[in-house]
Design a protein around this nucleic acid. Structure first.
Lengths: 210, 210
DNA sequence: TTATCAATCGCATAAATATGTTATCTCCAT
DNA sequence: ATGGAGATAACATATTTATGCGATTGATAA
């Protein structure tokens, strides 16, 4: 039996969800609340398996509620409910440990499926939400325009610089003379258009060379 | 009518998928191939709506195939098929523009659902894959674990270090003596547990202090 | 074949950095 | 008022870095 708590300010939807879920085998709504004012205590008291959390609530919104719960409980599965597949909220929800993110217009049978998936450790998402996530993912990862034509050896040296090694240590690690390390580093500086170790390190991070 | 191409090296699975899909209303398999050797030409010739692409193929694997297609075609929807929810492959697939990522053990009816979702612009994912994605996402975004108790002034100095300023330049920018800059930097090193400028810069990036 | 380039090394020197110690001054909390 | 913390500053010294001007080797491309 999957036990749920519901947080949803709209009375109609709250009642509707409760009835839908209670009317389905294997699911039970322990309680349904219209705000997150006492969310921590309520979760502690009822010990639900899954929480349905509306994002757009007055007062403490769903994201805040999510954070409050996650601050004290990493176990309970939290499914975010929302009207819009809003980019910012999706991102916020995900990075704060939501287990799934579904649109309110999701058909009832789908919703039950999603709840079951969430409970069993999955991360159910409406397809449109998943698209958002993938887009964010690939957009935050595309930079790589220049690789500055660093040679293999130069890349290795740069890697060591980033790890905080001194010339001496690099020479020892790479089995070459310290003067060779100097040569490599000078070349690296030329290619990266910098003139100090820390600038090179910063550039390596910024341009994701490492 | 949703038109598909299938890339799958296993003959059984290839035939099975073809029959399953061709036996379903609204879907049609245009062709099924056992490798990606001519993927670009094939896609151009058949103009499918959706491509089912196995990841684990000998020769040109699914990720490579995906890249080849995306290099010339951003329109066609590509669903990756795989046996494992392997972290690395998921990431690769996503950042190279896959539209969905489903496990081969997905039941037939689900698979057809996923294909339909992909075609209509969704991003279908098996729940376990979605979990992977969320984990990667939130791990790459952990806001501010420690701030190392850096004072305001120290944060400013660190910022300048990250920007590649020398002690002299920092002193000039902050209207303080170079020895004061030294003092600040020494304190910063203590707090960050490092002992060189470039290590401090690297740590600043890693821990998102800047 | 010649030319280029990556990788290797040496020497020299100036500049920058790292480290230690000490000492005001101000603000803030006990 | 007393102590602590942060910001400021000076002085000394050892180490590291940055840079210039070389050189040899081997692989590879024009």
């Amino acid at each position: 039996m999957t036990k749920l708590l519901i947080y949803e300010d709209n009375p109609q939807l709250r009642e509707g969800l409760t009835m839908l879920i209670n009317g389905s085998d294997g699911f039970e709504v322990l309680a349904a609340f219209k705000n997150c004012n006492n969310v921590v205590e309520e979760v502690a008291a009822w010990k639900p398996d899954v929480i349905l959390m509306d994002i757009d609530m007055p007062g403490i919104n769903g994201i805040e509620g999510l954070k409050k719960i996650r601050a004290v409980n990493d176990e309970v599965k939290i499914l975010m409910l929302t009207v819009f597949d809003d980019n910012k909220n999706v991102f916020q929800a995900i990075s704060n440990g939501a287990n799934g993110y579904v649109l309110k217009k999701t058909p009832p049978t789908k919703l039950l499926e999603y709840i079951a998936e969430a409970q069993s450790g999955g991360a159910p998402m409406t397809a449109s939400i998943a698209t958002q996530v993938l887009k964010m993912f690939s957009s935050m990862n595309n930079e790589r325009g220049e690789d500055y034509n660093l040679s293999e050896r130069e890349k290795q040296v740069l890697q060591f610089l980033v790890e905080g090694y001194s010339y001496k240590m690099i020479a020892s690690e790479m089995f070459i003379a310290i003067d060779t390390v100097r040569s490599h580093i000078k070349k690296i500086y030329e290619k990266l258009h910098v003139n100090s170790k820390s600038e090179a390190v910063a550039k390596a991070f910024k341009d994701k060379l490492v």
